[in-house]
């Protein structure tokens, strides 16, 4: 495991400030390379603590319609895995502190060459990886190479990940735990505050890792509710939909999306102060 991973540093800062972190999800290359890079570069100033960057795939089975559409927009614009790594490199040239987590599906990585990808991604400045369809049972061909290169493998846990299965999911995972708060796909239903609170308590019994909660968090109010309990909150579909709404005014897209992201990050950062007040 890396001792210098940006994720560790960032979660330590958040803990010291008694703040929940805000994780934004956008798709690399949506709607085009240039706009997507500009958006990426602007996210930290809009209060994003950790950047989750989607690697577009034609068949994102765990995602809802909004993110699949974003993937297809990016691919239609010529996005590839090689270009996604290039985008991370360009981001890192100007920002050395904001952690980047790549999220995607295994086939493009397998096609690229799993070990080569691990080396190239780490070299580009990636801190963690969420590979949705590479469960612990199948990840031996990739995870050791990723860890050796200094990146964390971040696993999803769900309401259906039972006590028996949890140790397998937690072993070899690092950076943070990504708790999928609903049974379903991204951008679907929303879990109740009580359900989220109970789930986090359960995970904390098994792991010292920070817990980030995602799937089904649709607005600032929902993000603030979750931020009272979670170490970090992930919003994806709602941001991606904001990108979609601004497709016809690309020169304003970055500003408009960041204005929205700022409302989310502020809500998350203020959650505990408000709860205490």
């Amino acid at each position: 495991m890396s001792v210098n991973n940006r994720l560790d540093a960032r979660f330590a800062e958040l803990r010291a400030a008694n703040q929940a972190g805000f994780i934004s999800f956008t798709v690399a290359g949506d709607p085009d390379y240039e706009t997507s890079l500009k958006l990426l570069q602007a996210l930290p100033a809009a209060g994003v603590d950790v950047i989750e960057l989607g690697m577009p795939f034609t068949d994102p089975m765990a995602d809802g319609a909004a993110i699949q559409a974003a993937d297809l927009r990016a691919l239609a614009g010529g996005m590839t895995l090689v270009k996604t790594l290039q985008m991370v490199r360009e981001f890192r040239a100007l920002n050395t502190t904001t952690p980047i987590v790549l999220m995607g599906y295994y086939n493009p990585i397998y096609s690229y060459g799993a070990e080569k990808f691990a080396r190239d991604a780490a070299q580009a400045g990636v801190d963690g990886l969420i590979i949705v369809d590479l469960p612990p049972e199948e990840d031996e061909e990739f995870r050791p190479a990723a860890q050796k290169a200094g990146m964390y493998v971040i696993r999803l846990t769900t309401p259906t990940t039972n006590e028996k299965r949890l140790p397998a999911v937690l072993s070899n995972s690092g950076g943070f735990l990504y708790y999928v708060s609903i049974t379903g796909i991204t951008g679907a239903a929303t879990a109740s505050e009580q359900q989220v609170q109970n789930a986090i308590a359960r995970l904390k019994q098994h792991s010292k890792l920070p817990v980030a909660v995602g799937f089904g968090i649709k607005d600032a109010a929902g993000a603030q509710t979750v931020a009272r309990h979670a170490d970090a909150v992930v919003v994806g579909s709602a941001i991606v939909q904001t990108v979609e709404r601004n497709l016809n005014c690309r020169h304003e897209l970055v500003t408009n999306v960041c204005t929205y992201v700022q409302t989310l990050s502020t809500a998350v950062h203020d959650a505990r102060k408000k709860a205490a007040a």
Partner: peptide
């Protein structure tokens, strides 16, 4: 026992699906 036919097969699914297929 893990569903492999040589290199092929397996269970490449999201954690959301894993408990179901088990």
């Amino acid at each position: 026992e893990r569903g492999h036919f040589g290199l092929f097969g397996g269970r490449f699914v999201a954690e959301t699906l894993m408990p179901l297929i088990l």
